[in-house]
């Protein structure tokens, strides 16, 4: 089966800083891959690159058959990127924000209601975004993501600040993803929360990835000379 995400020696810049300095990564369909690594390792940049929000500076990148070097847009409608920010408007209510995002993605209001129920946002539906607590915002961000019904979830620290109902639902999303054929790329510090659902863990260090090419059907490419020199083969026990 073709890979959902395929990166080879991907270099990605934030301004003039190479946040990703040659990353290889494969994600197979239905796979949940945990991205771990310290702050500034490049996790968010990697997710933004896969979402098509950042241009690929060097190397190869392909997401769901779309070559990122040529086209960063076509695959976006099939992707839900749950970022640190909600991407919502302060002066709109929870329901209005959800409705705008869902309609824009071609969904109907039934999905909006569904997402509101799923994340127990009913009581907050008519509250403006500006008045939500951090935990409630995180739940809204997740609701916006699931209402898109994506083939690929890109989750950036979804646990951070998420309250109990949100965490419970996130577990369900992760548990069901594989059987629904959705792939998940999840960056998290809370490794214990994610490991039970993850088929693999990829450690990012200084814009480099370890354990990234173990997906079924992946073929490692020769890494750039510097990368090979710099990173000693770190063996990582695959998580069960």
């Amino acid at each position: 089966m073709p890979l959902v995400v395929r990166l080879r020696s991907a270099v990605c810049l934030l301004g003039r800083f190479p946040a990703l300095a040659g990353v290889d990564l494969d994600v197979a369909p239905g796979e949940t891959v945990l991205l771990s690594g310290g702050n500034g390792a490049g996790k968010t940049t990697l997710l933004r690159l896969v979402a098509g929000l950042l241009p690929l500076h060097q190397g190869e990148g392909e997401v769901m058959g779309v070559n990122l070097a040529e086209d960063r847009r076509s695959h976006r409608s099939r992707v839900a990127f749950v970022a640190q920010d909600t991407g919502c408007y302060e002066d709109l209510t929870v329901r209005e924000n959800l409705r705008f995002a869902t309609r824009a993605a071609g969904g109907d209001d039934a999905r909006v209601d569904e997402a509101i129920d799923a994340l127990e946002l009913g009581r907050l539906a008519d509250v403006r975004h500006g008045k939500l607590s951090t935990g409630q915002r995180r739940r809204l961000a997740l609701a916006v993501g699931i209402a898109r019904r994506p083939d690929l979830y890109l989750l950036d620290e979804p646990h951070a600040g998420l309250d109990a109902p949100g965490r419970a639902y996130l577990d369900q999303v992760l548990a069901r993803a594989a059987e629904e054929g959705r792939s998940v790329l999840i960056a998290s510090h809370e490794l214990e929360m994610v490991r039970p659902f993850a088929s693999r863990e990829v450690v990012l260090t200084n814009g480099q990835a370890d354990g990234a090419l173990d997906a079924a059907g992946s073929t490692p490419a020769p890494a750039p000379a510097e990368a090979a020199e710099a990173v000693e083969a770190t063996t990582l026990e695959p998580t069960p």
Partner: peptide, 25 residues
């Protein structure tokens, strides 16, 4: 600029001892 960038990539790859890393040698 390109040369500075190549240097920056090389620096990043070699990196100092990474902070807060999980199980990296």
């Amino acid at each position: 600029d390109e040369r500075e960038l190549e240097a920056a990539i090389a620096d990043r790859v070699q990196g100092g001892p990474p902070r807060e890393t999980v199980g990296a040698s």
